[in-house]
């Protein structure tokens, strides 16, 4: 059978198999066999091998849909946050839920990073670092002259930064699971 097969179909099958290397062998073999069966059915119906392969798209693009679905399913079943976040990132461009979750997670981590940096500075220079308020300004950071404003957080800055870290971790996990469950075909 291999000897009679069109070389373009063989090359596409090889490329597809390689692009699906992340999948278990049985799944990969089945996808490649089904692609081959589809193309041969199209050829039997009068299409050229070239047209039949073109209608599937480039092998790597065709494989990416299987890979993404596999990544979502395995990350949800593993339940590990790095896997969940990795799968979420890979689906940001294809899913509104993943994009929304990604934006909220990014904003949460930017806030955590900002307040974390300020908290570290506060340890080194507690007199000049904090959340400052006066009639003319309201900001979080370093002030030149502490007598010109009132510091609102005091020693609470570090606990707030730690709380922000914990909330960001929990939020990341919760939003990733939420978005991936919306992508996965399971209710």
């Amino acid at each position: 059978m291999t000897q009679k097969e069109d070389p373009r179909l063989s090359a596409y099958a090889r490329e597809l198999r390689w692009a699906l290397s992340v999948l278990p062998d049985a799944d990969r073999d089945s996808i490649v066999d089904e692609m081959r069966s589809h193309v041969l059915d199209r050829v039997d119906a009068g299409a050229s091998v070239e047209d039949a392969l073109a209608s599937l798209g480039p092998a790597d693009d065709y494989a990416s849909a299987f890979r993404d679905a596999y990544t979502v399913a395995t990350s949800l079943s593993s339940g590990r946050t790095p896997h969940l976040v990795g799968a979420l990132i890979r689906n940001v461009a294809n899913s509104a839920s993943a994009a929304v979750a990604g934006i909220i997670i990014l904003a949460a981590w930017m806030f955590t990073l900002m307040i974390g940096n300020i908290a570290i500075l506060k340890i080194g220079d507690p007199a000049h670092v904090g959340l400052w308020k006066s009639d003319h300004f309201f900001f979080i950071g370093i002030i030149d002259d502490p007598s010109t404003g009132q510091e609102l957080l005091g020693p609470w800055l570090l606990p707030i930064a730690l709380a922000s870290l914990v909330i960001s971790l929990l939020l990341t996990r919760w939003l990733a699971v939420w978005a991936l469950k919306r992508i996965a075909p399971r209710r």
Binding site: S30, I31, E34, R42, S55, F66, A69, A184, P185, R186
Partner: peptide, 23 residues
């Protein structure tokens, strides 16, 4: 539905437990 769309969809539906397949 494009040719390149149907098989990934079937694969996802099968993973979700909605359909089953057999050669």
């Amino acid at each position: 539905v494009a040719d390149g769309t149907i098989y990934p969809l079937l694969h996802r539906m099968e993973t979700g437990g909605f359909i089953t397949s057999e050669w």
